[in-house]
Amino acid sequence: MMNVIYTILCRDIDAQLSFYQAMFGWQEATRYRSPIFRALQADNLLFGFHAPMARTLLNLEDASVGVPGDGGFPTIEMPCFEEVDATAARVGTLNGTLVKAPFVTYYGQWQAVLRDPEQNLFRTASLHLPPGIIASPITF
């Protein structure tokens, strides 16, 4: 079995852990807890948060913290479009930001674009579209 570990550099790892835990209901993976790292576990995903001190340890002194899209961003796939809608509705109450309200992508996902309290981008998406919504191919 393969697991995915996605880690973001943060200013406040405890606040970030609390935000994502409230957004998605994931449990803390306490075996990874250290002074410079926190993580949440969801199925085959470990979602981690590195404190600024970790940048030196990882030789990432030049890496940006809180720069939207710096180094990529995660997409959390939800089981249904209603959960994408719910995360979009909930993000502001947790001091995050809704960047783009739920919409249908050209590749057939129901998706929302959000930022956490430190301005890191992330998306929620579902392969299940709301009734009556059809994806339209995009022309480049």
Rank of each mutant, 00 (worst) to 15 (best):
T75A: 04
C10F: 02
D116G: 01
A39Q: 04
T7I: 12
M2T: 04
L46I: 12
I138G: 06
I13A: 13
T75G: 04
Q119M: 11
E77Y: 07
R90D: 01
P35G: 15
G132N: 09
L114Y: 13
G132R: 01
C10D: 04
V99I: 14
T56V: 09
N44I: 07
V84L: 10
G108T: 04
F103D: 12
H128G: 03
D70A: 11
Y20K: 14
G92S: 14
R123L: 12
G96N: 12
K100F: 05
A22N: 13
L129Q: 03
T105D: 08
L94F: 11
P79I: 05
Y107R: 08
L114Q: 09
A22D: 13
F49N: 06
S34K: 05
S136V: 08
S18K: 15
S64H: 03
F103H: 10
Q21L: 13
M2Y: 06
P131F: 02
D116P: 00
P102G: 04
S34D: 07
Q27S: 15
N95K: 12
Q27I: 13
G132E: 02
P137Y: 06
P131M: 02
R31C: 07
W110V: 06
E82N: 08
R31P: 07
F24D: 11
F49T: 01
E61A: 15
Y106S: 13
T97D: 13
F140Y: 09
F140M: 08
F47N: 02
Y6M: 04
L58Q: 10
F19T: 12
R33W: 02
G72D: 08
L98D: 03
V67L: 09
V99H: 04
P102N: 07
A54W: 01
V67F: 09
Y20N: 05
S34Q: 03
D43M: 00
A125P: 00
I138K: 12
L127Q: 03
N59S: 15
I134A: 13
P68V: 06
V84F: 04
L17A: 04
R55E: 09
V91C: 07
Q109K: 06
R90C: 01
I13F: 13
D70P: 00
A89T: 02
V84D: 05
R55K: 15
M1R: 03
Y20S: 13
P130N: 02
P137N: 08
D70T: 04
I5E: 12
L121E: 05
F103L: 08
P130G: 10
R90K: 15
I76A: 03
T7H: 08
C10Y: 07
I134S: 10
P35C: 00
I76G: 00
Q21R: 14
Q111M: 11
I134L: 05
T75Y: 00
P35A: 02
I36R: 09
M53E: 14
P79K: 02
